[in-house]
Write a protein that binds this DNA or RNA. Structure first.
Length: 895
RNA sequence: GGGCGGAUAGCUCAGUGGGAGAGCGCCUCCCUUACAAGGAGGAUGUCGUAGGUUCGAAUCCUAUUCCGCCCACCA
């Protein structure tokens, strides 16, 4: 593919055509691709794999703007840079969406059967899969697309099953029959992390259980329907209210079943309620354990479909919530409902479908967490894995304490089958990736594959190394593992990040990444999390169409402050689009005036160079320092803002304006300004490229074409600028800042004095001291920037206000008085009022400072430099007050 | 019940011990041949509230109110 045409730069920057053109160019030239190069320093990221059927939302846009900025920066900095993209099969999420979609077509999941459903899932994946990855290209993401991985692709499946078998052989994976989370709608078990707890206003029902032989105990419950499965009432052994009840039985109401009153100091808190607790071992994890301790029977009265079972007697077949109503009615009828209180408590909901989860007694596969959690804890505590912002490290450590065993089996079709083969003859389990010929215990060939699939997070936990070829020891693993950073959002720290940390340590014996950057959540302007289901999606593709990929990236980076949440404000994107346009036009101007100036490789300014040249180069050096520091610390907003301000407020507003005057001047000086313009612009483009890759590439290509360069190189493979201390010039910066202040004062006086642009004004500058302003530059630079003819600016000797004609308006800077003679247009009254207001403001400020300096405590305790600074401020305020007072008295004399 | 963020200009947000800032919006002037998608100038704040520490607090401490998030089996 040849270099795109970039000859004529149009007046306004139009992103759409430019962006797709350069993306195709980079892609075709293989600039996104990386190969292992032994001995060469590398930089590697893997993206958090989005759901395969997902679409880009604005949170992704932020996340990937960050990824690609880091990648382009590191790549230009000379590292062998790789980013592996990919998608997640998202078992439960995808299965649910597909089931709903099929239902709309009148097809039920069960009628398709396992094979049919899995085939439909693959079809669905092929149809919608990869949409999101295509959308990432619109943002400019420089990922190695050849290496795109999917958690269900062949190699990845092998990695997952290998990991499973490793754990299994160690005895860390085991079968358990216990009460766990169950979603009756998704019809599968869930891990604790897939359950969202929400506060719900509900009721607390107090039910009287008659004691056999007289009396009663009252128990309270938020789920009255579970009483049908009660197998005991527990009290605290030391509770005097219930001591006499121990050993007796109650007649379970409704069911008329006799159940014992038992003592259980662990389950029962005697300070709560009546001190008596109904025990339902099949429907509550705590009751389950109580049941184990006391050998209680387990009666499942709610089934996997959320309906009451045969064990629920005449309530069998009812939905659990309907059963609740009817049980309450029945209790009321029996006169056993003592009271009903309003009660707020947390109810678990399925993360995917928001159905209320039901604690059910089921057989599941569990992964032992003890050793794995310890690996992650150690890595974080020792600082081998660091979080940015670091507060998330504390949160991560907290969540690693007392991690419950991980329920890894799911009753789903879409996902990785457990590599376990059950023998129909002897019931033994044979672990194997492929179907084994015979049962390892009895040799029978009558085997069937375990029907369960794995929690989707079990596979994503292996992501950073599985995508690099693990379990094989590939060149990619050698070159790129550990990866360098994980960039993701806080919602999945526990679900994913920590699981990658211990998985990496366990399987590869090395951390998967030393840094974890947690970016903020993108919210709506009202502060609500953006989500499709809430209709607050925020489509980044629309933004890109409207403002450009560069502006979308840049605005998000400008807002990405220290991991803070971002209330999305579209005007910020608009602002970044304007910035791109500004850069574009400044570049156009520079190129129009460059003539045949060759691009200098470096510049060595000395004292003989014009002030503004030394100033802009010093400012450039400073911004380079800021950018590299900020990017290194993941302070994207600082880096982006430093560049934004440099380009717009310093280069465009001041330097380019001053350059205009020099093109027609002496040849040597014109040549110098062209050199500096070319150098600063080209360096700025390289520095900005990671933030705004498209527009910088477009400009850079025409710049180099104009400068006579040839070849097919791209900006994205140029070297990243580094700070050059020899450009740093504090003195030039200080002197130039005085020029800026002078110019602003003149402009201000003109505007406030109501001078029309064409109107002649005489400016008199009176320095407060011999060296207070750079005398050489003042007449020329100030006059030029304030749009005056040079003859209309007069630099008077220090303190010689006598040469200023009256009446005039005046302003005070830190270094000089500035007088504007408006040829009879001065409104003395208005000017007097203005100056009086100014004196009031200065006096107020002055009394604050003077008060401070008269405070002996301040003088003795504050650091000397602070005191000195206050003294300087006081001096300056006094001087300005003096200047204005003098001007006031001059005004009164004229009137 | 515990923990973590946030509260600063009309809006979106920077600013962690020493003279309150940016962008957008608003007001005035200007189509000066890079850019009107621009330029110049301007107005705008009891820095959530109340205490405290300090010579000095938007910034540190305590309490408190709202908003958001995370954790937690008290029936």
């Amino acid at each position: 593919m040849s270099e795109p045409e970039t000859s004529q730069l149009s007046k306004a920057y139009e992103p759409s055509a430019v962006e797709s053109r350069w993306y195709a160019y980079w892609d075709a030239h293989g600039y996104f691709q990386a190969e292992p190069e032994p001995g060469r320093a590398s930089y590697c990221l893997t993206i958090p794999p989005p759901n395969v059927t997902g679409e880009l939302h604005i949170g992704h846009a932020l996340q990937h703007a960050i990824h690609d900025t880091l990648l382009r920066w590191r790549r230009m900095s000379g590292l062998n840079t790789l980013c592996v993209p990919g998608t997640d099969h998202a078992s439960i999420g995808t299965e649910r969406l597909l089931t709903l979609s099929l239902k709309k077509q009148g097809i039920s999941k069960m009628s398709l059967g396992r094979d049919g459903f899995v085939k439909a899932a693959w079809d669905w994946t092929e149809k919608y899969g990869g949409t999101i990855l295509k959308q990432l290209r619109l943002l400019g993401c420089s990922y190695d697309w050849r290496r795109t991985r999917f958690t269900m692709d062949e190699g990845y499946v092998r990695a997952v099953l290998t990991a499973f078998l490793d754990y299994y052989e160690r005895g860390w994976i085991y079968r358990g029959s216990r009460v766990g989370e169950w979603c009756p709608s998704c019809n599968t078990s869930l891990s604790d992390l897939e359950v969202d707890h929400e506060e719900v206003l509900s009721s607390l029902w107090h039910i009287r259980y008659p004691i056999q032989g007289g009396g009663s105990v009252t128990v309270a419950t938020t789920r009255p329907e579970t009483m049908l499965g009660d197998t005991a009432v527990a009290v605290h052994p030391d509770d005097p209210r219930h001591k006499g009840h121990l050993g007796k039985t109650v007649l379970l109401p409704v069911m008329d079943r006799e159940i014992p009153i038992i003592a259980d100091p662990i389950l029962v808190d005697p300070k709560f309620g009546t001190g008596a607790v109904k025990v339902t071992p099949a429907h509550d994890p705590n009751d389950f354990e109580c049941g184990q301790r006391n050998n209680l029977p387990r009666i499942s009265v709610i089934g996997k479909d959320g309906r009451m079972t045969e064990a629920a007697g005449r309530f069998a077949g009812l939905d659990r919530l309907e059963a609740r109503k009817q049980v309450v009615d029945e209790l009321e009828r029996l006169g056993l409902l003592e009271k009903v209180e309003e009660y707020t408590h947390a109810v678990g909901h399925c993360e995917r479908c928001h159905t209320i989860v039901e604690p059910l007694l089921t057989d599941q596969w569990y992964l032992r967490m003890q050793d794995l959690a310890a690996l992650a804890t150690d890595a974080i505590k020792s600082g081998r894995v660091r979080f940015f912002p670091d507060r998330y490290a504390a949160e991560a450590l907290r969540s690693l304490e007392n991690v419950p065993e991980w329920c890894i089996s799911r009753q789903l079709f879409w996902g990785h089958r457990l590599p376990l083969w059950h023998c129909r003859q002897c019931a033994a389990v044979t672990p194997s990736i492929d179907r084994p010929a015979a049962c390892k215990a009895c040799g029978s060939s009558d085997l069937y594959e375990d029907p369960d699939t794995l929690d989707t997070w079990f596979s994503s936990a292996l992501w950073p190394f599985a995508v690099l070829g693990w379990p094989d020891n590939t060149p990619e693993m050698e070159a790129f593992y550990p990866t360098n950073c994980m960039i993701t959002d806080r919602q999945i720290i526990r679900l994913w990040v920590l699981r990658m940390v211990y998985s990496g340590l366990h399987f590869v014996k090395e951390i998967p990444f030393p840094d974890v950057y947690i970016h903020g959540t993108v919210l709506t302007r009202e502060g609500v999390r953006m989500s499709k289901s809430k209709g607050t999606g925020g489509d980044p593709v629309e933004l890109i169409n409207k403002y450009g990929g560069d502006a979308t990236r840049m605005s998000l980076l400008l807002m990405a402050s220290k991991g803070q949440d971002i209330r999305f404000a579209e005007e910020r994107v608009e602002g970044s689009r304007r910035f791109a346009n500004k850069l574009w036009n400044a570049s156009r101007f520079v190129m129009m005036n460059l003539a045949n100036t060759p691009l200098p490789q470096s510049l060595s300014p000395d004292a003989s160079w014009p002030l503004e040249d030394r100033w802009i180069l010093s400012r450039l050096n400073r911004v380079l320092e800021t950018v590299s520091r900020a990017l290194g610390e993941y302070d994207f907003d600082d880096a982006a803002q430093a560049l934004y301000e440099f380009v717009w407020n310093e280069f465009c507003d001041w330097y380019v304006e001053l350059a205009k005057a020099r093109f027609g001047g002496p040849e040597e000086d014109a040549a110098r300004v062209r050199q500096v313009l070319a150098f600063v612009l080209e360096t700025s483009l390289r520095t900005l490229h990671p933030f705004m890759p498209f527009v910088t590439e477009e400009i850079w290509q025409s710049l180099r074409t104009q400068l006579g360069a040839t070849g097919n190189d791209s900006l994205m493979v140029q070297s990243y600028p580094t700070a050059d201390p020899s450009l740093s010039d504090d003195e030039a910066e200080e002197r130039f800042s005085r020029i800026e202040e002078m110019v602003r004062t003149v402009r201000n006086l003109r505007a406030q004095g109501g001078a029309q642009p064409a109107q002649r004004v005489q400016v008199y500058v009176v320095p407060i001291a011999e060296d207070s302003i750079p005398q050489v530059e003042v007449p020329s630079l100030t006059a030029y920037l304030a749009q005056l003819a040079r003859a209309e600016l007069t630099l008077l000797p220090p303190k010689q206000t006598g040469g200023v004609p009256s009446p005039s308006v005046a302003g005070a800077t830190r270094f000089a008085e500035v007088h504007l003679s408006l040829a009879g247009l001065v409104d003395v009254e208005k000017e007097t009022a203005k100056l009086t207001r100014e004196i009031e403001a200065i006096s107020k400020e002055l009394s604050r400072v003077t008060g401070k300096l008269q405070n002996s405590q301040f003088l003795s305790r504050a650091p000397a430099e602070v005191v000195d600074k206050e003294r300087a401020i006081e001096q300056e305020l006094k001087t300005r007050k003096h200047q204005i007072e003098a001007q006031l008295s001059r005004l009164s004399q004229t009137s």
